[in-house]
């Protein structure tokens, strides 16, 4: 009975994950894709709980569905992206090619899984010591895996510096372009940089209006 329940839960959350993953790819609006991706994250968190890894499940919800997806949704709303317009698709033949390559990739993965066969251990064996608890993860994180932990902290520092640098450079070049347009006036549009000035001419009133 309990085994049957486990199989039912696995099927439910696997179907939820796969359905939401397909929705991520199929949806044209990025916001709907983001919502579907949150569904995938929650389904995977349920799988982690069924695999006796409660700490990873909690981190999955907090970091992925919480922090990262909030960042993505924030950027989508900041950039105000409409639905992807239908362009004259010069690369239309790439879609069947992509699906074919994905099928080949899945066939390779299925072959590896089939040839590996079943594992000697079974999950949720109560006699073995638990490995998914916060304490066991913390103990080995700060003893055996201390060096990767420190390297990860340096990586995060580099990411912070990189993000700030990207944001600052963009705003400085924008200010410089706006100043060039103000000084030289409309004659500059005939020059080589005419395309960019024309674009910043359109942008600048919107930006100042938004600031005010």
């Amino acid at each position: 009975m309990e085994t049957l329940l486990l199989y039912a839960l696995f099927g439910l959350f696997a179907a939820l994950a796969i359905g939401c993953a397909i929705a991520v790819v199929v949806q044209r609006n990025p916001l709907y894709s983001a919502i579907s991706l949150i569904g995938v994250f929650i389904a995977l968190a349920a799988h982690y709980i069924m695999l006796a890894a409660p700490f990873i499940a909690a981190v999955q919800i907090i970091v992925y569905a919480g922090a990262i997806m909030v960042l993505v949704v924030f950027v989508i709303m900041l950039l105000n992206v409409e639905e992807a317009e239908h362009r004259p698709a010069r690369l239309r033949f790439l879609v069947p090619t992509a699906i074919l390559l994905a099928a080949v990739l899945f066939a390779e993965a299925a072959f590896v899984i089939y040839s590996v066969g079943d594992s000697p251990y079974s999950s949720l064996d109560t006699s073995a010591p638990p490995v998914g608890l916060t304490s066991s993860i913390g103990i080995s994180l700060f003893t055996e895996y201390l060096l990767p932990f420190e390297i990860t902290s340096i990586l995060l520092l580099m990411a912070i510096v990189g993000a700030i640098t990207l944001a600052r450079q963009a705003s400085i070049s924008e200010l410089r372009r706006a100043a060039a347009v103000t000084i030289t006036g409309d004659n500059a549009e005939a020059e080589t940089s005419g395309f960019q000035s024309a674009k910043s001419n359109e942008i600048t009133p919107v930006r100042t209006g938004a600031i005010n």
Binding site: L6, I18, P30, A98, A102, L105, I113, V116
Partner: peptide
């Protein structure tokens, strides 16, 4: 118990969908 191969198969399906999405999509986000 649910066999390990089922989880690996689910993971392979999700990875394949993600890879196909990277190839198909043109929106950067």
């Amino acid at each position: 118990m649910i066999p390990l191969a089922w989880y690996l198969a689910l993971s392979a399906v999700l990875f394949t969908i993600g890879a196909a999405g990277v190839l198909i999509k043109r929106n950067a986000i």
